[in-house]
Write a protein that binds this DNA or RNA. Sequence first.
DNA 1: ATCAAATGTGTAATCGGTTACACACCGTGA
DNA 2: TCACGGTGTGTAACCGATTACACATTTGAT
Lengths: 333, 333
Amino acid sequence: MATIRQVAMRANVSVATVSRVINNKGYVDANTRKIVLKAIEELNYVPNSVAQVLAGKKMKVIALIVPDISNPFFAELAKAIEEQARQKGYTLFLCNSSEEEQKEFGYIEVLKSKSIDGIIFATHHLNEAMLDHCRDLPVVLMDRAWIKQSLNKDTFVISARNQRGVQLAIRHLLEMGCRKIAHIYGPQQVITARERRLSYQKEVERFSWYSDSLMAPGYFQIEGGRKAIQALLKKHPDIDGVFVGNDTMAIGALKGLHQMKIEVPHQVAICGFDGIQMTRMMEPELTTIAQPIEAMGKKACQILIDLIEGNKKPKQHIEFDVQLIVRGSTKRR
Amino acid sequence: MATIRQVAMRANVSVATVSRVINNKGYVDANTRKIVLKAIEELNYVPNSVAQVLAGKKMKVIALIVPDISNPFFAELAKAIEEQARQKGYTLFLCNSSEEEQKEFGYIEVLKSKSIDGIIFATHHLNEAMLDHCRDLPVVLMDRAWIKQSLNKDTFVISARNQRGVQLAIRHLLEMGCRKIAHIYGPQQVITARERRLSYQKEVERFSWYSDSLMAPGYFQIEGGRKAIQALLKKHPDIDGVFVGNDTMAIGALKGLHQMKIEVPHQVAICGFDGIQMTRMMEPELTTIAQPIEAMGKKACQILIDLIEGNKKPKQHIEFDVQLIVRGSTKRR
DNA sequence: ATCAAATGTGTAATCGGTTACACACCGTGA
DNA sequence: TCACGGTGTGTAACCGATTACACATTTGAT
């Protein structure tokens, strides 16, 4: 790899001049510029980012920390973020925390030492210690966030309107004729899972059929969803609708119902949450509350880059609207 | 962030001594070491990777270039590679090429300038120019590779036994009683897609029912698979089995059959290829030829790190065995 | 007691860029 | 003619680590 000194030598100028040409900064004679550019071309010179960073420039790298990249929601999110970052001249560092707080902590350490410019964080291990650990690094929190606790910090949050989504889901199920609606919820330390469960309760507790035993945990996993629906139906054979806390569990629930030879949507209707692509592949296709995953990812990236480059002060909290997508798993006529 | 000089100052030693302590290299008095470690602890010092790289150390970062991270096959692969890399002290840079050659080229440029240590490459745009562009960077090719063309270079390839996999699939379908087996293939510039199509032909051309029109393109996409099966059945209503070039298209084919109210597996049996997790979620569950995705990812990572650290000379080409996993989509009794 | 080898530590060059500062030259208005 | 601001260019310090080399001290063998 050629260095700036080799380019300077070949063009018969100083390194400062070459640097000025590269960065389009300061005065350079038109002819000198031409000669330097020719030398750069001939030597196939590309500035060494590492040296540039050491000298004070940005690395132009942002990191995305997700709990599980093989979860389609995060894969779709990662894709959107990556796309946006690349367009802005940034490269994406992908980190898979496997839901382990210790790994997340370790990653932040590594990322800081590598002079990463900022982090987009999708975690539920968000606490004071973690935020403190990120000090003087721009951070955007996605999806799962302690909004209240983090707002006093220099922290930025992107989220979806969970409560409104749940409302849409429950009302839709009721309209489709459901008279006893169960809920499968995700891990309660995850803010979105808790929000969705609480909203479910709020929507249905006014009905005489409601009971706390209509809720079962599915751990945001396919298998958890399958087991949960089967346990629920054992307890309440008259359940005729289920609102599931995310699409992954809904896919599992659909499978569980198939195994029990229960027809969807005629005997039991299912509505999920998230809007991942895979919901369209199931049979029947899954009704779901779609988050604008791509838009959210792009926005998160945009905000992070604004923070890094300091041009403008972004809003601290942006909430995206959700959308009911009606498909076969709830269409009763 | 504290620097090595601040640590040296606080411990009343020179930077060289601090460096020796950090790297466990050279002679350091036991007591001095203790004092230095205390200073490091107190200042919360972490060596700056960027400076270390400039001074000749490795960045300890590897990059993975995939065509589409939201494709489950690559998501699972990425997860395995990330896990392995992290265990070896490396961080993973994820790059999504969107199948675009130009992006891949651009990524290599960026990665080189950022002093990445090596690349794991899953692409079909592999050509002389691309390989040349990667010169003096360790590279491991995954899954889709011009094996022959690349072997003369310093290039390493991980692949699966495609031909054997196709053999397993076809023989299984025949055993299940299929008497007219169609094939949905992926993009033919992709080596694995071509290999699978050619192997299919080799397996079935000896039968009287065989005709070239039993093959249709599905572009490795869900929607492509759906359309392909419908087109095939229009031409040949007596097709009773289909070997699909990857699981993604098989999911689409299953959907297409559902729409046509054709029962799987009784009227048409389906066998896919790859072994992604999602095949287990479908109804019926999909029979598939499973590649050991996790093992392949880990191996690719291992080889790359061996190359980077130069401890041992890995084999240039490792081929993994595949496995027939029989599930509901072909079980006829 | 003597000298070589082993041990312990510091100084300064180096990696490849950026940039503050110095200097020289030019044109122009007073 | 002089002074001054705009141009154009080079020198050298700096970013934060590593490490070759120099030097001092201790250890151990004879």
